[in-house]
């Protein structure tokens, strides 16, 4: 079995929006624009960025919940984007998703037991008794009592609902879980509970995670490698400690500098940067980051920098580094 579980190459997902009245103009939003990365077995890979950078769309495109327009996605060597409906159904058992908003992620009209049993029924995975046992086992594994099976989502707190979401993602014993901001909606003390749970499950089930988040601290804790996205593109990727402790791309530096740190002696020096995230409808020419970049050069305004390998594990897409090399 190869080390590499998921390989994403040049993935592109576009949306079209009609804007304007009475003569609407069709805009194309390049939500995900040629991103490439891979995830090894048993690894957690972080995808960080601010809202609208395309990180969630990337996750959904890999699952084909949103249809991508170009590029390649391989799961254990199988071409995901070439699959037909039936193959896709099978594939999705190996790849599951956890959502950010635990309220929206569970059908309010179904009991927890039904929510967890239905997918097993649909895929005919076991007799009634077996399914029931499996649901109880899963509930136990995510730290919920068996009585939870008879209750409805509204009877649980956010953290408990998220545990149900995690149990659902585990139903098919997947190899990869795409976790889309799984702890962002939770209270601080609950966040660490859920993170610890996910970490424990990762070990017992040998899971890989694509961990999508805006919170650098959480990604640093949970992931071993990370990619930083800005307006649909990956600007930098590499081992999480290197990327966050010695960031190369100016945007990563800004993101790091702007993240609040719970230490008054450090955080008073928090970086301030001017400028807004530009609209993904109309990204700046050249490097998307150049209008906000403190190190902007002439070339940045016209040409998007290609990804440069800094060492065997790190890449960065920035002209600052291409010049040094060239």
């Amino acid at each position: 079995m190869s080390k590499e579980l998921l390989k994403v190459e040049g993935l592109q997902t576009f949306f079209t929006i009609k804007k304007g009245f009475p003569n609407p103009v069709t805009h194309t939003v390049r939500a995900v624009d040629e991103i490439s990365f891979h995830i090894n077995r048993g690894e957690s890979f972080g995808l960080v960025g601010e809202s609208g950078c395309g990180k969630s769309t990337a996750g959904r495109s890999i699952l084909r919940l949103v249809e991508p327009h170009g590029g390649q996605v391989h799961l254990s060597g199988q071409d995901v984007l070439a699959m037909d409906k039936d193959q896709l159904r099978e594939m999705r058992r190996k790849m599951q998703i956890i959502f950010q908003d635990p309220y929206s992620a569970l059908n309010p009209r179904q009991t927890i037991g039904k929510i967890l049993a239905e997918p097993l029924h649909v895929h005919r995975l076991g007799t009634k008794g077996e399914i029931r046992d499996r649901v109880f086992a899963l509930l136990k594994e995510v730290g919920l009592p068996p009585e939870a099976a008879n209750k409805y989502p509204h009877e649980f707190s956010g953290g408990q609902k998220q545990r149900v979401g995690i149990a659902r993602a585990l139903l098919f014993e997947p190899e990869l879980i795409i976790a889309d901001e799984p702890v962002s909606a939770l209270d601080v003390s609950i966040q660490s509970q859920v993170l610890a749970l996910m970490q424990g499950l990762q070990e017992t089930h040998n899971l890989s995670f694509l961990f999508i988040s805006h919170d650098l601290a959480v990604v640093r804790y949970f992931c071993s490698r990370v990619a930083v996205m800005y307006l649909g593109k990956i600007v930098e990727q590499g081992p999480v400690k290197q990327v966050f402790d010695e960031p190369l791309h100016p945007y990563t530096k800004v993101l790091r500098g702007a993240s609040p740190i719970p230490d008054p002696t450090l955080s008073k020096k928090m970086l301030r940067m001017e400028g807004e995230v530009p609209s993904p409808l109309d990204p700046p020419t050249g490097c998307h980051f150049h209008p906000r970049c403190p190190d902007v050069m002439e070339v940045c305004k016209n040409q998007y920098p290609s990804a440069i390998s800094v060492d065997s594990e790190r890449t960065v897409a920035c002209h600052l580094y291409s010049q040094k090399q060239g």
């Binding site: 707190s157 953290g159 003390s189 609950i190 660490s192 509970q193 993170l195 610890a196 601290a217 719970p262």
Partner: peptide
């Protein structure tokens, strides 16, 4: 104390989080 110990940090390595058990 528990709250400060349970949050992941960007500025340092934490090997194990110490989640506060139970619910609010």
């Amino acid at each position: 104390e528990a709250l400060l110990k349970s949050v992941p940090r960007l500025d340092r390595d934490i090997n194990d989080l110490n989640p506060i058990p139970g619910l609010v």
